[in-house]
Nucleic acid binder design. Sequence first.
DNA 1: GTCTATAAGCTGATAGAC
DNA 2: GTCTATCAGCTTATAGAC
Lengths: 193, 193
Amino acid sequence: MPERSTRAMIVEKADTLFYEGGFEATSFADIAAVVGISRGNFYHHFKTKDDILDAVIARRIEQTRGMLALWEAEGDGPRARILSFIRMLIANRAKIMAFGCPVGTLCSELAKLDHGAQGRAAEILGLFRDWLAGQFRALGAGDRAEALALHVLSWSQGVAVMASAFRDETFLHSEVAGIEAWLSTVPDPAPLT
Amino acid sequence: MPERSTRAMIVEKADTLFYEGGFEATSFADIAAVVGISRGNFYHHFKTKDDILDAVIARRIEQTRGMLALWEAEGDGPRARILSFIRMLIANRAKIMAFGCPVGTLCSELAKLDHGAQGRAAEILGLFRDWLAGQFRALGAGDRAEALALHVLSWSQGVAVMASAFRDETFLHSEVAGIEAWLSTVPDPAPLT
DNA sequence: GTCTATAAGCTGATAGAC
DNA sequence: GTCTATCAGCTTATAGAC
């Protein structure tokens, strides 16, 4: 299936370019140049730029599902699984300091563009929220599981924004340590939220 | 000074458009249409689009300084002053849910564009950080004042990203309540950070 | 200080040869 | 399935009349 290969390559490169340069600022010419095809050929695979965005979001949803399933399978208990999520901030720190969180920044950009795909992009955050809520439930958080999940997700989004604004790796590490310390108090965290 | 008036109007309208639609997606034509001048006239006041961005950032820095000075003058003690900052999230909730935080989203966009003004935009966050750190010092936080300031700033950035991604006002209110509850434990906050 | 007219280049998108 | 050639429209930016 040579067709699927080229198409998959376009989506993969577009994903990276949308992340590192933004959706609107990335042109067909940019993607075509990286993939190594002509602009004309492009339209054999995708009719509009929005179609590429849809494919990129679908790819990210699929990859997120795969990652969550992996953490679910490999993590030794819910606390360790939540740590897998938090430590993404460390594992991807170079890219996060340069470009922020791929999902958070895409949601922000699409919101400003008043783009119809904004809701679908937010679904990726929803996958993390639901998975994290499941882990907190397993920790005995009960009704507060979803609020705790949103809190961790929100905290990590804030860290990503700040780390990229200030390009400050020390801050990133100390906030991750803060999240981990907070997590050790769950399911009975102090005053929060 | 009729010149300054037109120039000031351009900066004011550009500020709003950059916030609500993004810097790159906003064209000279968009700004000119809102201000009510021709595109040609535009270049009498600003030579390049980057010049407008510089002016917008300078305006935001000035307005932030003014706001911080007001909170400083009117706030009844450091705890009340920090609450003034936190409650911006509530006061501006409609715009935050639609477009995120004006400063955080601008920093994120400029980072992706690899724009030279990114550092200047981050200075606005720096103003908040330094002011908050001063308040935490006044609360007796000592050496941890700056870390606590960054934590509040980061927390509020995360809330802004999540509130706009999910368009969820309930979440926004409950996180603000969480920040306030956490603040009441300072200068001796639990496990944190 | 504001306007119209215009330039050169990039944008997303199309048509049609191979 | 990939290419070249082309389109209309928009972009930032300039020149020059009033």
